[in-house]
Design a protein around this nucleic acid. Structure first.
Lengths: 208, 208
DNA sequence: GCGCAATGTGAATCGCGATTCACTATGCTG
DNA sequence: CAGCATAGTGAATCGCGATTCACATTGCGC
């Protein structure tokens, strides 16, 4: 189908300026989330940062909500991919858990506000639904990892779903609380070590 | 000072109707938080439920925000009192921890939305500040409890502050997640048992 | 070189919730 | 009683952010 397609596909692309505005909008939204949470990510702010007028947003998304659904979905995919990566490496469940904690931790520490916004901050219903799916998925994957450990005797018997949820909660809280006064603490490494130890002990993984 | 006090104290009380409107407003606010979170607790909703007009709220509070500061403060005091009670009973740290988990849990399970709103839902700055104090206090008290255990050898050495934060996170997440589809699960008892076990294991308390 | 679709503009509009305010009612105190 | 402070009313107002829309501009296919 080279030349002829009656009623050709809309139009490939053709922006007067440089990059795709759509991408700039998404990027701006993420940046604003990083800086000031959902409250800072107003339409005006997003479009201003993208060097377009407010109306332009609606040429690319049916609503602000839908834009954020995409932001959340993208972020969730990245997190889940990272979790997957961490979970296939190495052998021992304890090591995998350690890797997961570090992965999870490093992104959260790099961008605390973003992590908070993506994970906890209540937003519009549509976005919330998206987040619920992500959380559930993350929990399930983590529970799978635990189940493997339980099955092969590395971990004691336990409710894997509950443990997974509790781990996520423990990590989030431990990271969010001490870091709220934005100042990047000094003992980040130490914190992560302690946290990793805590998590492994919590599920009964053999030490070290 | 029986009869005379030039410029007597303002005025004791005198409502045309029954109870103190102020109390009704606070109560209504809590009920609405329980039912639909902060979003449902609009001034109009609060005043309607209290059988007064919107303006009446401003006879008792300088702003909606201040009303909620009071709501949060009261709730926080109750929680902290409960924590204190649980922590002075019995002897072993493991038992105390168990008591704390159950106390914390039962209130959260009774009113999940309220727990969420009080603990996590972002609100106005003033209220948020209040919550921050509460969280910090709760964490410190819990950390104190852990430190006692560490000191007398019941718990292994660890970062008590981090463990306290992680415990709170674990409990919150474990309770909130599986209960989001409001339906009261069947195995509440089981859940609490598992959670208590998880927490005690997480801090390295001797089993049982 | 025309026409049309995509894209962008930005002021006006909408919606919604908090807050105000002029007025009324109540009941104490002197 | 008169005076006055407390309480309450509820429509009007304010503020603020999302969304719309009538009007450019651009660039490709014909």
């Amino acid at each position: 189908m080279p030349s002829n397609r009656s009623r050709t596909a809309p139009h490939p692309a053709s922006t007067p300026r440089g990059g795709a505005t759509r991408e700039r909008l998404l990027r701006a939204a993420i940046e604003l989330l990083e800086e000031g949470g959902y409250a800072a990510a107003a339409v005006a702010a997003i479009t201003t940062r993208s060097d377009v007028a407010a109306g332009a947003l609606y040429r690319h998304f049916p609503s602000k909500e839908e834009l954020f659904v995409e932001v959340f979905r993208t972020a969730a995919e990245q997190e889940l991919a990272a979790l997957y990566e961490a979970s296939i490496k190495q052998g021992s469940v304890s090591e995998k858990l350690d890797a997961v904690v570090r992965k999870f931790t490093s992104s959260a520490l790099n961008k605390p506000r973003l992590a908070w916004a993506l994970g906890y901050e209540p937003v519009d219903p549509l976005v919330d639904a998206e987040r619920l799916i992500y959380r559930q998925t993350y929990r399930e994957r983590l529970a799978d990892l635990l189940r493997i450990g339980i099955a092969n005797g590395e971990l004691p018997a336990q409710d894997a779903d509950l443990s997974a949820a509790a781990l996520i909660g423990a990590i989030s809280e431990a990271l969010v609380s001490p870091l709220s006064p934005v100042g990047e603490g000094v003992e980040v490494e130490e914190l992560v070590d302690s946290l990793s130890r805590f998590c492994r002990q919590a599920v009964g993984a053999s030490p070290e």
